[in-house]
Design a protein around this nucleic acid. Structure first.
Lengths: 248, 248
DNA sequence: GCAAGTGAGTGGTATACTCCAATTGCACGG
DNA sequence: CCGTGCAATTGGAGTATACCACTCACTTGC
């Protein structure tokens, strides 16, 4: 339970090493500079090389370093984006250097109905908390968000209301930690009422994002339908070839 | 060089194990069924548990299995999509069960110019092969693709012309293997000429995708600008929380 | 009958060691 | 002076072993 925030002497040796390495990557070292060798790190930290490798491998997976056999491990160029990471709107905007906010927040408890029920694997009669809000960045409307959370998982959420980050509330109040999400992005145009809410011309292009979020136990926590204005939003990410299959 | 396609007794023990496990996942086992325990696999394959773990861990990263301490390793539900994987149009369409094709293919060798040059880190005067085509799925236009490849990396490409998959050609003829790509997705609407090419109403919604692709040595291989019709295309993928940071 | 407790079995982390494969720089020879 | 080749270095793969943390089914006791 004593999990301190991010960097420090937390948890396993591997995790400590990871923190140290992240510090190097984001601090002292510039892109394409060489990290200490595995053997050096192992010795100076008093751990096995395997432990070092696990930490470095993970950073490799995440694209923060790249490794070349015979040469060494090097810092990757800063990633242009990290939209493949699972984030809340709040986190996402902060990462872009904008101040997140909400307008017209509305919370109600309603039966799931056919569609929402299907998305959350509930009976249509089961209750869900429906949170509707216009999300803003630096005060400007960015997206319209409709979120549904099974009432069973977050009792009293509708009554309590939402102030800041829903994800934060789910974690702290209900101990629901989202670990995974399936997301589907569509391109669309804004019909007049939505355009008005977002303050853009009618029929402007927009993203429609559908998302089902799960916790570590594969329990469905949230279904969200969001509409983002396309003039201020894009999805930027890095993708990798997934080993196997040379079938072009 | 003798890399056989996918499954089989290729390469390292870890890779062989991976193939075996993939076979199980895609064959015998249904979602949420339990895989053999790490210790069992280690014994029956005559390898260490650590080797087994590496194989299973990787499958875990890729979302094909999920692991629960104390319980076991289980097959994940089939993924709704794999758009976070790096694929060519050809592969992507095949994965969706459609037959890929091309119309109006045009190849020319031109100076990069300011924008393309910047994207590929070339001088504006350096030559690039420009491939322009309308990509089809089951004969229907799906997207308009403009691809640029540095002429130095693929000499004679313009003369040779493109028949099927550009990626296949790059791999087989020029030994350029794309490993990584930065991708940026925007929502837009189709202006009349593009709409006509794709056979949809003017001002229909569409995705605009910009992509810079790199090989293992971080050499820029390709810059591509594609426009997809939104009525037949969506981006579906799974995202994960990236450990660290509880800062919601 | 039902809840609490416990233990076997599972994945998670770590040590200590070995050999292989790719890279790179330096010395040596043409 | 250039390049060829060798040797040191670095990451990659693997073995053998130990102990920890969590889960879950079964037993036990009320």
């Amino acid at each position: 339970m004593a999990e301190t925030a991010g960097n420090g002497r937390t948890g396993t040796k591997g995790a400590q090493l990871r923190s140290y390495l992240l510090g190097l990557i984001e601090g002292e070292l510039k892109p394409h500079e060489k990290l200490p060798t595995e053997r050096d790190l192992a010795e100076t930290f008093g751990v096995t090389r395997l432990t070092v490798r696990r930490a470095l491998d993970q950073l490799g997976y995440e694209g923060r370093v790249y490794r070349t056999q015979g040469a060494g491990t090097f810092v990757s160029e800063p990633r242009i984006a990290k939209s493949v990471e699972l984030t809340s709107f709040t986190q996402d905007m902060r990462a872009r250097g904008l101040v997140p906010g909400s307008l017209d927040t509305m919370v109600e408890e309603i039966p799931a109905g056919a569609e929402i029920g299907a998305r959350l694997a509930l009976s249509p009669r089961d209750l869900v908390a429906h949170i509707s809000r216009v999300r803003t960045a630096d005060g400007e409307p960015m997206c319209i968000e409709n979120t549904y959370v099974p009432a069973k998982l977050a009792p009293g959420l509708a009554a309590r209301g939402i102030t800041g980050s829903l994800y934060q509330m789910l974690t702290e109040t209900y101990h629901l930690k989202i670990e995974k999400a399936e997301q589907s992005i569509h391109a669309t145009v804004l019909d007049p009422p939505l355009a008005k809410l977002l303050g853009v011309p009618e029929f402007s292009p927009a993203f429609k994002v559908l998302r089902v979020a799960y916790d570590a136990k594969n329990q469905r926590i949230e279904y969200a339908e969001s509409v983002y204005r396309a003039d201020r939003y894009s999805y930027d990410f890095v993708i990798f070839r997934t080993s196997r299959d040379n079938t072009n």
